[in-house]
Design a protein around this nucleic acid. Structure first.
Lengths: 233, 233
DNA sequence: AAGGATTCTGACCATTTGGTCAAAAGAAAC
DNA sequence: GTTTCTTTTGACCAAATGGTCAGAATCCTT
């Protein structure tokens, strides 16, 4: 495999400590600072999610945010800082659906609800999904520590819940981790491979008709599979 | 969305016509040409699948292939040419599993066999999977025409087969396109998000134990879903 | 062994890109 | 309105990168 890192492995928590901008930090953030940082991060999300860390350029991000490169670099000293800030801003949103999986709910309903939350996220924030996809695809140079830390903790916990459901016979006896992978894969696919889906379907997941069909298909397969039979009726 | 193309939209078929190398083309290809081109494309697959088109550098590809940059450029004049050649070399392999789906087979068995072929491909050629994933994620600047052409033809045809199965009641009544998407998503996930899977599982899909568990989970879900019940037994 | 074709290389060039800086322009406080 | 702090900009730099080229080295045929 490749050894050359795209970006030095910097933990997400380190950002706060680092003074990553030239804008004053001692006092409270200015109105202008808040506005500009937001529009920079919006622009950066678009660029990074399309071209990846290396492929995106500061010039393009600045241009998309309607400012000049040195002006942007007044708010974020280095390209890495922008990338880290974007990832950080998006991470919580990304983990929330799994966090909401309730151990004491009705197992099939909980799983279905989780699938739907993820599918909605793919529809409403496809760029965020692509940002993470690109980061992971390229070996997670930045998120690497998060994967083995924060994410693993959460997934281990929820996998234990699902495993118990299976042991109690409330769902089929399947591996909880691979079930979670399947849910991630199928839902995020609609965001990450949007171009392909649009080419084959003539419409993306943002189209409400396609969204409904996707939702129905996922429900059927995850609940009943493709086999015919009258299990419940 | 973004308008800036990573690479000019060049159809895959155009490559053959273009003289894309300085090496002689009039006569038959030399032993050295065959060998070097192969090792260049091997190296290029690694680099492109890790860093994407923009992120990969000719220097790195050359270095990985054990030659100097000008030497590499003797075989492929431009970076694009290498990228196109790699995509082309990998495309057929990628489409074959779906092509092998037989209309007159036993529907559930055909679907299962297709899933297994795709899963094996993810295990045996993860870099190829990542190459396509990166290309699609970035808007398919090169494969764009293939998606709406060759791939769409194939998928439309196989979707029709699956639709008939559903209409005849031989599988559950589900949308064939979304079923195909689910199969792509779940199987390719193991290649594309290998880093994440390794972080959470401590092992990749190349690990035979994980492969078996993945295969079993996919089989169960795609056939029966998560609901418990004694449909066939 | 000779000679022509093929392959390989170092030196080089132009462009892109991340990043700096001094100073101008603009807000905000008084 | 003046002063002080914040924001913006053009000019600039160094490194990385795609690509060229003339000539040297190597291979292959006879």
């Amino acid at each position: 495999m490749s050894s050359q890192p795209v970006l030095d492995g910097v933990a997400l928590n380190e950002i706060d400590l680092d003074r990553h901008s030239r804008a004053s930090l001692t006092k409270k953030r200015t109105r202008i600072q808040v506005e500009k940082e937001r529009s920079i991060l919006d622009a950066a999300l678009e660029e990074f999610s399309t071209f990846g860390f290396r492929g995106a350029t500061i010039d393009q991000i600045a241009s998309r945010a309607g400012m000049t490169k040195p002006n942007l670099l007044y708010y974020f000293r280095r390209k890495q800082d922008i990338y880290l800030a974007v990832l950080r801003r998006t991470l919580d949103m990304w983990l929330r659906p799994l966090e909401a999986l309730e151990a004491d709910g009705h197992p099939p309903k909980e799983i279905l609800a989780y699938i739907n939350r993820k599918l909605e996220l793919s529809r409403d924030n496809p760029t965020a999904s692509r940002l993470f996809a690109l980061e992971i695809l390229q070996g997670a140079p930045v998120l690497g520590e998060v994967l083995g830390g924060q994410l693993k903790l959460l997934v281990d916990q929820k996998a234990a819940v699902i495993r118990r459901w299976a042991e109690e016979g409330r769902i089929a006896p399947i591996d909880p981790y691979h079930l979670i992978f399947m849910i991630w894969a199928t839902t995020q696919h609609y965001a990450d491979f949007e171009v392909q889906i649009r080419a084959l379907l003539g419409a993306a997941i943002s189209d409400s008709e396609q969204f409904d069909t996707a939702k129905a298909t996922l429900s059927t397969i995850f609940m009943d599979g493709v086999l015919t039979g009258n299990r419940h009726g």
